[in-house]
Design a binder for these strands. Structure first.
Lengths: 338, 338
DNA sequence: CTAATGAATGAGAGCGCTCCCAATATATTA
DNA sequence: TAATATATTGGGAGCGCTCTCATTCATTAG
């Protein structure tokens, strides 16, 4: 069948283009008999309206973009992102939106992708996973382009942008306080990079918990990781000489790497050293020692992000909106409390 | 700035719409001075052509779809899919295509998504990750819709569809032959599901290697897994009573689960029992014991898949094309050969 | 210097839909 | 039954581009 148009369906059903359009879009003011006849023709012919024509005429594409900037593609080994993507995709299905994925590989790609993202007629709105210094540029461009935008994760400069995040400071604070309460004395941390807001916030929570108890902060117990397993492994090796009895890692995957390093050094978990991670992804329960960790609602986070974006699309960009989601400390074996 | 159109740019540059169009699309027959003037106006105004209008007029959307059917979303814990997605996204960037992601969560979603995928004016072509019985329906629909289609993974019925796959039988055959050559006598396998072609093919390779050496096939050494870590774990528990001295798992993630079960049973790897996985994803090297495994070129696979799809779009769907990619056995610690 | 050639440019139709408005059919009321 | 109100339908313009074709302009050869 050569591509059918509204006009073809109209002719076959003996009505006008407009009426077919009404039926297709579910408008109420069509006589039942007519509607039935039109639906029949549509069904028999397998007609689907042309998306581009519809978008052009209505100025709505029913497509959302998800941009994972360069900083993320570097972290792509972290299962967090696939999970987030899943939540977002799920929400898109639910709301009948199509999801366009912009996975930026290189910094040059980022510039190449921007025109496509900001171009009218392709996307109704954009979701950017951010929180890295290097993401500021694309966020700035997107804000200027007036494209409805939601940032997943707190960006460095958050004025005028709507974003959604979890309460990282509070979550880390709780996790480390838990270690203190169990009785650990030398609690180290494998922090995230300083050029990421998550890294900063989670470290802040760690410091807050120590200070709250009047503990001295020992700089040798703080090491920076890069949110990869290997990064966690090497960070732990750097941490070992400082003889920590517990470690708070800023992500599960770094905790896994850190535990590997600890085991290789002959330490038993949690007897000799305790671990707490962050994320509660499936990998947390995969290792021999079940990981105590901060659960963040990844799927829900993705869904909320989409809902926030739809809100911006429907009701305008101002004022910028914020959503901060709660987390939960999940106590398992690796912290020695069970 | 209110949305700019070609006409606006034309007026400002003192030329016609057509000339601006030529400049935007890089046609050669424009005088240098004129081209420069137009480019200047475009640059100053930040004009980007409207995607929908362009698609409607040219009947090309420059967008490809990636469908991950229900069967895959079930397996989404397997890092294979994020990696594949990455390869595909990378290729899309390279060829200036936008990637639309259809992540099917539920079986009902699948029907909801089909009209969007097959609708004209949204996608130029579709990539479906398949190889599961349940995927046949959507593949059938897509073939009927005449949409350029590439299936990633051999589908159950492959007549008339273009697909790309790796040589699973051969790869598994090599892996198991390697175990035999080292000297293992009771080689078990954790196979994939029988309703998936990968599962079937990798098991066939296993059997082929055994038969080649005149080995008796012991059914108690063959257990079916579901391509998840937990599945591998339980499969291994079922396998243990049969006392295998080596296990070929149909995926890395199942091998990881199986090794966990083996360790829990007090077995040392590879001293008491050897393991070989399949995929060679980063997780293969993350555990304490580095996994011997079959490396498949996941990223390259994604790129080739996109290139095949572009070929279909440019040069027509017939005859259906096939690409079978090679694999490589990567020998590490878990097989005891190192 | 003019005719012929080729390159650069502009005008117009059309892609397939939405949406407004006018026209028509039907229902309601006096 | 006529007049009015209301529900249904059709026609037309327009969304912002591409692409063909006719036109104009510059260049070269005779």
């Amino acid at each position: 069948m050569p591509d059918l148009t509204l006009e073809d369906i109209a002719k076959q059903a003996g009505v006008s283009r407009s009426t077919v359009s009404r039926v297709v879009n579910g408008y109420p003011n069509v006589r039942d008999g007519v509607r039935k006849r039109v639906l029949e023709v549509i069904h028999n012919t397998g007609y689907h309206p042309n998306a581009a024509a519809r978008t052009l005429a209505s100025q709505r594409s029913w497509t959302l973009g998800l941009v994972l900037p360069h900083s993320v593609s570097f972290f792509f080994t972290d299962p967090y992102y696939p999970h987030l993507t899943k939540g977002i995709a799920q929400a898109c299905n639910q709301y009948n939106y199509t999801l366009a994925l912009f996975l930026v590989g290189t910094k040059e790609d980022e510039e190449k992708i921007f025109p496509r993202v900001s171009r009218k007629g392709l996307l109704d709105g954009v979701l950017v996973q951010a929180g890295h210094h290097g993401d500021q540029q694309i966020i700035g461009l997107l804000v200027d382009s007036k494209m409805p935008l939601v940032v997943a994760g707190r960006p460095f400069r958050s004025d005028n942008v709507s974003y959604i995040d979890i309460d990282n400071v509070n979550a880390s604070h709780n996790a480390v306080r838990h270690l203190i309460q169990i009785g650990y004395r030398r609690i180290g941390t494998i922090a995230g990079p300083v050029h990421s807001t998550v890294g900063l916030d989670r470290k802040e929570g760690y410091l807050k918990a120590l200070k709250e108890r009047g503990r001295e902060v020992d700089e040798s117990l703080i090491v920076e990781g890069d949110f990869t397993e290997t990064g966690g492994y090497y960070a732990m090796q750097k941490l070992l000489p400082a003889k920590p009895d517990a470690v708070f890692a800023a992500s599960d995957i770094m905790a896994i790497g850190a535990m590997r390093a600890a085991r290789e050094a002959g330490l038993r978990i949690p007897k000799d050293i305790a671990f707490v991670g962050f994320d509660d992804l499936p990998i947390a329960t995969l290792s021999d020692i079940q990981l105590t960790t901060v659960r963040q609602p990844v799927i829900q986070f993705g869904i909320k992000a989409v809902e926030l974006l739809l809100d911006l699309i429907e009701n305008g960009l101002h004022p910028p909106r914020r959503i901060i989601m709660d987390t939960e400390l999940i106590i398992r074996d690796s912290c020695g409390a069970a």
